[in-house]
Amino acid sequence: MESMSAVLKSGGALFSGAEGVIQAQVRQEDKTPREDRLTVGLPFVDDARMTCRGVSVFYGEKHAINNVSIDVGRNQVLAMIGPSGCGKSTFLRCLNRMNDTVEGCRVVGDIQLDNLNIYDRSVDVVPLRAQVGMVFQKPNPFPKSIYDNVAYGPKIHGLASSRAELDEVVESSLKKAGLWNEVSDRLDQPGTGLSGGQQQRLCIARAIAVRPEVILMDEPCSALDPIATATVEDLISELQEHYTIVIVTHNMQQAARVSQRTAYFHLGDLIEVGSTDRIFTNPRHRLTEDYITGRFG
């Protein structure tokens, strides 16, 4: 516990230079006093797959994530909720360094996967991203056939030694994502021709075909009907036995159904973390309570 607080402190010191800017921005956007925005609850767990300490993210001058420290438990589902624009996607993208591709984006702090700092110089992002897969908020199928979309990852990582094996990977991935029945007879048609919800499931199938160990899902059910949503939720519960999952959602019931822990973000701050049951029955922070009871702006 001691070492952890030391890390926290050093994380805080890392961006103390930018403190003035942050303060000004916070005052502009929100009336909540600074000291009320410290994380409450239990951000740390004993058996952590990923640990984040003092993570801050800047888009140029804009301060999008402010000193967030949180653990992602092994074989657990962590749900991230919060109002639109609070930085959920930004934080999620830090976990597999997708923010590297955003020009002008700067990440400070310490993020570890299995006790290895993923922002360390020696870390190669390519295997990291194969290990930490991601489903994006906006479905982005490749302009290839449905089959090739799913087979893309397994092909480049050499996960299938024969065509038959590849077929199997594609089929099982599509089945898990609940898309197989709809597309099994038109695998050679472009993935971009699918409906929005189908594309979303295609992207889920594409991500799990690589068999990542940690899966980051950014609102994977935002365009899905209740039946498809239930399929994806089943998938998450099934995956959770072997994988670690972080999911962003705007749907409280979904967070309550699939996750063990929930984190509430507010304007770049991590306000409250705790077991999902506790957060939804007995939120400690006023902002969390306002949000989950629907009183938020």
Partner: peptide, 27 residues
């Protein structure tokens, strides 16, 4: 070619050259 295509490929653990050859040039 939209950045989302590149992101999609990178997120699957593709290298830059794989992304260029298999996603960007065909598109």
């Amino acid at each position: 070619v939209p950045q989302a295509m590149r992101d999609g490929s990178y997120a699957l653990g593709a290298t830059r050259s794989e992304t260029i050859l298999r996603v960007i040039v065909p598109a």
